[in-house]
Amino acid sequence: TLFEALYDYEARTEDDLSFHKGEKFQILNSSEGDWWEVRSLTTGETGYIPSPYLA
């Protein structure tokens, strides 16, 4: 399933992933509550992002 970022986000820890509004992601793991592990389709990087920032 693909999701798109609604807002920009700046990583706060080394496990987080910074991203920009409009960036698209593949969800790798959504079992961690509000923090999902994703792969950016723009950069190929993986990390955790806050799920409320996605649509």
Results as ranks from 00 to 15, higher is better:
Phe3Gln: 02
Ser40Gly: 02
Asp34His: 09
His20Cys: 13
Phe19Gln: 02
Thr1Asp: 11
Tyr53Lys: 12
Thr1Glu: 12
Ile49Val: 14
Glu45Pro: 00
Leu41Gly: 01
Gly47Ala: 03
Lys21Ile: 14
Phe3Val: 07
Ala11Asp: 02
Phe3Ala: 06
Leu54Met: 07
Glu32His: 12
Thr46Cys: 06
Thr43Asp: 02
Glu37Gly: 01
Glu37Cys: 14
Tyr9Trp: 07
Leu6Trp: 11
Leu2Ile: 14
Thr43Lys: 01
Asp8His: 05
Leu28Asp: 01
Tyr53Phe: 11
Glu45Asp: 07
Trp36Arg: 00
Thr46Met: 06
Glu37Arg: 10
Asn29Ala: 08
Val38Ile: 02
Asp8Arg: 15
Arg39Asn: 01
Arg12Gly: 07
Gly33Leu: 08
Leu17Asp: 01
Ser31Val: 07
Asp8Ile: 02
Ala5Ile: 04
Lys21Leu: 07
Lys21His: 04
Phe3Tyr: 12
Lys24Cys: 11
Ser40Pro: 01
Arg39Gln: 06
Ser31Met: 09
Asp34Met: 11
Glu14Arg: 10
Glu10Ile: 11
Asp34Gly: 14
Ser51Gly: 09
Phe19Leu: 04
Ala5Asp: 15
Ser31Thr: 09
Thr42Glu: 13
His20Phe: 10
Gly44Thr: 01
Lys21Val: 07
Pro52Glu: 15
Thr13Glu: 07
Glu37Asn: 05
Gly44Ser: 15
Arg39Tyr: 06
Thr13Ala: 10
Ala5Leu: 07
Thr46Ile: 11
Gly33Asn: 10
Trp35Ile: 08
Phe25Leu: 06
Glu10Cys: 11
Glu32Pro: 08
Gly33Trp: 09
Ser18Leu: 04
Trp36Tyr: 04
Glu37Trp: 14
Pro52Thr: 14
Ser31Ala: 10
Ala11Phe: 04
Gly33Ser: 10
Leu28Pro: 00
Ala11Met: 03
Tyr9Met: 03
Ile27Leu: 10
Gly47Tyr: 06
Phe25Asn: 01
Asn29Lys: 05
Ser31Phe: 08
Asp34Ile: 11
Ser18Thr: 11
His20Asp: 03
Lys24Glu: 04
Glu4Gly: 15
Tyr48Glu: 09
Leu2Gly: 09
Asp16Val: 13
Leu54Trp: 09
Pro50Glu: 07
Phe19Lys: 01
Thr13Asn: 12
Ser40Cys: 04
Glu45Ala: 11
Arg39Ile: 08
Glu23Cys: 05
Ser18His: 07
Val38Leu: 00
Thr1Gln: 12
Ile27Arg: 04
Asp16His: 14
Ala11Cys: 08
Tyr53Ile: 12
Glu37Ser: 04
Pro52Tyr: 15
